[in-house]
């Protein structure tokens, strides 16, 4: 079999520069999962229909399956693990847990990443704006209600902490 040509890739993943040799066909999703061990980025459909693989690419939520890895060369990628950790949880993660917004959890990584993208841009979204922002992220378990509530609660908490700091 003809071996595909590979190209060097440099990515800043969750604040850390990573390198890999990748083929042109490889998507950012594939490289994140198979080469960089970032399996928190999920594959649900492989073609942009479900949002399970959402990551922040230079701050914007995108489907990692609809981005070639080489197209992200030199850019910043943030995954769920880059948003918060058990030691330093992000309010979104806390509210998703607390509000029961996580059932099977397979959509959660993409949901939380997308919600982060929203709150970075719009700290005070209405329920409608939240619904719209996550309308590229499918969830089969929750019916979305608790997810929207969790994002609302996290937004509120983030605004409060911001005000406290002032």
């Amino acid at each position: 079999m003809k071996v595909s040509k590979t190209y060097p890739l440099k990515l800043n993943v969750n604040g850390e520069w990573k390198k890999a040799e990748v083929t042109p066909r490889e998507t950012l999703l594939h490289v994140m999962r198979e080469r960089l061990s970032h399996t928190e980025v999920k594959e649900g459909c492989g073609k942009g229909d479900c949002g399970a693989c959402a990551v922040l690419l230079d701050g914007k939520p995108v489907n990692a399956c609809l981005t070639l890895a080489l197209q992200a060369d030199g850019q910043r990628v943030v995954t769920l693990k880059g948003i918060g950790t058990p030691d330093k949880p992000h309010p979104l993660q806390e509210s998703f847990i607390k509000k029961g917004a996580i059932q099977c959890g397979f959509c959660s990584a993409g949901m939380i990443v997308t919600a982060k993208g929203l709150l970075d841009k719009n700290p005070k979204p209405s329920r409608e704006e939240i619904g719209k922002a996550i309308s590229g992220n499918l969830c089969r378990c929750t019916g979305y209600k608790k997810i929207i509530e969790a994002i609302e609660e996290a937004a509120l908490k983030l605004r409060r902490t911001k005000n406290d700091r002032r």
Binding site: P86, E94, I102
Partner: peptide, 21 residues
């Protein structure tokens, strides 16, 4: 009581190792 599930914790931080992971 409305107690958060133990598995929600791992899932929220991307620690759960699903079959394909």
């Amino acid at each position: 009581k409305p107690i958060p599930r133990h598995d929600a914790w791992e899932k929220a931080f991307g620690l759960t190792c699903y079959a394909a992971d």
